[in-house]
Design a binder for these strands. Structure first.
Lengths: 148, 148
DNA sequence: GTAATAGTTCAAGTTATGTTGAAGTCAAGT
DNA sequence: ACTTGACTTCAACATAACTTGAACTATTAC
């Protein structure tokens, strides 16, 4: 039956190891049905879900968070356009934020090169503590504050 | 003597734990001098280096690579403008690439919402394997190929 | 000079994300 | 029916990046 993939087929299509699929399933990020003999069979939908998992990892999210994000989608069935839309929308802020962070990094790097600082030691932009100490311990310029 | 920081002072300014600084030093990413009693004293320069370490981690680089990147800078002395310039320049491709990746992700997410796919199952953009299977196992759309 | 605070090393523990290996079972082709 | 390759579980290992704890020492404030 086309429509169900073995773990090997799914892994090959995704370019990842079968062990990773079992791991994701174990962690509840994907689901499978089983043959009478106990082997996994994945709906095609799993390909998209796993693609998202890998994409989300690039953004720096841990599987725990990816899982809760994926919880918006129906576990088995392919998502409707509305479900998909809502899912995608929920991702935009994350992506935009990360892009903003990287652009800031790139731009400050560039600015610092050209900003005419006489001494890099006293450059406001790249010396996190020296001037930022006013903001109290933990003030940083280049490093985003992440939840502890 | 102003100019040398205790590990606690440096950690407070950077907003990280002292154990992290010892860890970075152990790994050779930063250096310190020692007091007669054996306590670490950090030159102010360490603040910038550690800021970079944290920034680079946001980009997704492992410490091993960050270390080799930092090797371009003088270990103790503050870098000259030229040294800094070269260092910063070496970072741009990394940053640009990561930004490009995230933008692609964001845009494809958007495209898929509006692309009029009748069925998400057959959407070229988000179904990595279905059409991309022509490219052989491992072809993916959303996931960047990273060095194994 | 002494107490409190902050520092030292070293080993072991933690979380995240998987991979690897052993021992055995299923599915498919001939 | 039998062989082969793909699958199963479960436990252990791997690596990164730190943190924690124990036992001890330095520095600083009074």
């Amino acid at each position: 039956m086309r429509g169900l993939l073995t773990i090997g087929e799914a892994a090959a299509r995704l370019g990842i190891a079968t062990s990773a699929l079992r791991f994701y399933e174990d962690r509840g990020l994907i689901v499978s049905t089983r043959t009478s003999g106990g082997q996994r069979r994945y709906a095609r939908d799993v390909l998209r879900r796993v693609s998202f998992i890998r994409a989300a990892q690039q953004v720096g999210l841990p599987l725990r968070e990816i899982k809760s994000s994926l919880a918006q989608l129906p576990p088995e069935r392919a998502p409707s356009k509305e479900e998909w839309e809502q899912f995608a929308e929920s991702w935009r802020p994350r992506l935009s934020e990360q892009i903003r962070l990287l652009e800031a990094m790139r731009d400050r790097l560039g600015n610092c090169i050209g900003c005419g600082c006489q001494s890099l030691d006293s450059c406001d932009i790249f010396n996190p503590g020296d001037k930022a100490a006013d903001d109290g311990p933990g003030a940083r310029y280049l490093v985003a504050d992440v939840a502890s």
